[in-house]
Design a protein around this nucleic acid. Sequence first.
DNA 1: GTCGTTTATATGTATATACATAATAAAGGT
DNA 2: ACCTTTATTATGTATATACATATAAACGAC
Lengths: 233, 233
Amino acid sequence: MSGDPQGWEAIRAEVLARIRRRDWAPGQMIPTEEELAREFGCARATVNRALRDLAEGGLLERRRKAGTRVTENPVRKATLSIPVIRQEVEATGRTYAARLIRAERRAPSEPVAGQLGVPAGAVLWHLVTLHLAASRPHAAENRWLNPAALPPRWTPERLGTLSVNEWLVRHVGFAWGDIAFSAEAAQEEEAALLGLDRGAAIFVTERTTWAEDHAITAVRLAHAPGYRLHTVL
Amino acid sequence: MSGDPQGWEAIRAEVLARIRRRDWAPGQMIPTEEELAREFGCARATVNRALRDLAEGGLLERRRKAGTRVTENPVRKATLSIPVIRQEVEATGRTYAARLIRAERRAPSEPVAGQLGVPAGAVLWHLVTLHLAASRPHAAENRWLNPAALPPRWTPERLGTLSVNEWLVRHVGFAWGDIAFSAEAAQEEEAALLGLDRGAAIFVTERTTWAEDHAITAVRLAHAPGYRLHTVL
DNA sequence: GTCGTTTATATGTATATACATAATAAAGGT
DNA sequence: ACCTTTATTATGTATATACATATAAACGAC
């Protein structure tokens, strides 16, 4: 019946409780791993595991020789799950579809070229896709694709029924990048695709993705109204 | 000169490279810890540390007895840092100030009461604050505070020069809760405080915070235009 | 004092070993 | 065939030990 954790999780829980009870106040040093190990009657490695976990969550700050202190102004670290749109849609029981609106090869604007780290005149694929949930607009996607990251003589026909993102995940592989979220007034084409007035408040996700040393793609996703990004602390 | 990682991080890097190169394709099983330990010439614990780290990032899925497989549709897990506004502002070299606009005791609307889990008629503190960066509007805060979570006979004068959030962090202590981000059209008062037209697209952070078993506070933060939430994958 | 050098120390990591746990796979019984 | 029991196995955790590393603090030279 008792859902009390055991092992290192029990130690994490106890330390967390002491922080919350302010036995160990923000900014204050806590005992060394060795002392805690003696108090809890376990090995130092076990205490280390617990404290490391709390430090990863931003609740403790640890430095060699200096020791461990309770973070003064804890910058809450929340783990966001960035969903694949298809899954996000299908998770709510609606059917998903992606409609490729436009696909052309052209040179990107100055800032986009910079963002992708390609020379100013480089010719990239520019794709506009509308993501549909139960046949209704879900998100408008504006994407630049670096041909250098694609197989030779790639064309959008290769996508089949997959969205660009899904195709990339399957054929180009994993990568890393960065994401930014913001609120913006809907641009002309976005508004039209989503069926909104121009200037409506939309939630925008911007992502740049890299592999090894070259940029793969830069995307701007304009989400339909009502979109919320949610997480638990 | 070589920034190549060592120890368990080197193993993590190698495994990651193999996943990215698709030596180990999505959905596929990878060798056991023991096999990898033999291959890399290290202890199983070291491999475990590397694989556990990748699993926490959502790139691998591990199950006892079953083994470890590459995640098929990796739901990217990004760690967001939710900053304290003062630090966020001061980090950019501007001076921070909080101005309490209104403070009154009243019953919240139905949805807010539900969100905080208080009875419909309960009287809460309702505070409106404007956060300033270099004397310019930075964010408009609309907050409901549960008096049950505060010291007896608490009044807003107790805040001094601290923002409500800062006061809570120092005096009420750590807590947990949930956060949601969305894009909305500016409400009447928000628009006025931020110096925007009504209906302008603003980035909204909504947070509910709990301690033990009772709600402490529910906040709606309307950020000035240009606000971006940024993270790295 | 100010600057570099040494030393002490808490955390970080690696190791072998052992046992716990979950969950699949195999064996057995009906 | 179906259900139950048992074995097997990969990961999960705990342990003692050892050494690495960052860095605060003490020390000395000037």
